[in-house]
């Protein structure tokens, strides 16, 4: 009777110990998985590269822009479309379509900005006038200095 009882106690003690060990093992395993996955996860996130801050970019000389022509230039990391109307006016707009990030082009026949991907249309002020684009294109300022065409950030006033 007595020995039976101690046997039962022993077994239950052992069982508790076993359970405890399993819990520890499980917890340790998950902690370990975390210790492995955390660095890998962090590693996969591309580090931020210092942003190239640009305030103005030289697009070229006026001679490169006959009336009714355009050119796409790099403004920092983003493309900007610089174009000249029939009447000789210069404009600059962000060249990234607000719909799905395609690069837009200047349609000389209609003097409009056109995105070939999904037939989006903007007017020369960058307003989305037809097709899927949800928002207007951001405007840049064009300054003519001597014979240089300079594109600067900032709102047209």
């Amino acid at each position: 009777m007595n020995s039976d009882y101690s046997d039962i106690v022993n077994t239950s003690k052992k069982q508790t110990r076993r359970k405890f060990l399993d819990v520890i093992l499980g917890a340790g395993f998950f902690a370990w998985i975390g210790a492995v996955l955390y660095p890998i996860g962090k590693y996969l996130v591309p580090p931020k590269v210092a942003d190239i801050s640009v305030d103005s970019v030289e697009a070229g000389v006026i001679g490169e822009f006959p009336p009714n022509s355009s050119k796409i230039i790099r403004f920092g990391r983003r493309p900007v479309i610089v174009f000249r109307q029939h009447n000789g006016d210069f404009h600059a707009l962000s060249a990234t379509c607000t719909h799905l990030d395609c690069t837009v082009q200047y349609k000389s026949e209609t003097e409009q900005i056109w995105c070939a991907c999904h037939n989006g249309l903007y007017d020369i002020e960058g307003r989305n006038i037809s097709g899927p684009p949800p928002k207007p294109l951001a405007q840049y300022q064009v300054v003519l200095q001597n014979d240089k065409v300079i594109v600067t950030r900032g709102e047209m006033t």
Binding site: L21, D22, I24, L25, G28, W32, A35
Partner: peptide, 22 residues
């Protein structure tokens, strides 16, 4: 970081050892 992960691994290894014995 090394200290912590090393601790985790050691801990896990120890638990595993006890498990095997068990």
């Amino acid at each position: 970081g090394l200290f912590i992960s090393s601790l985790i691994i050691t801990f896990l290894a120890l638990a595993l050892y006890l498990k095997i014995k068990d």
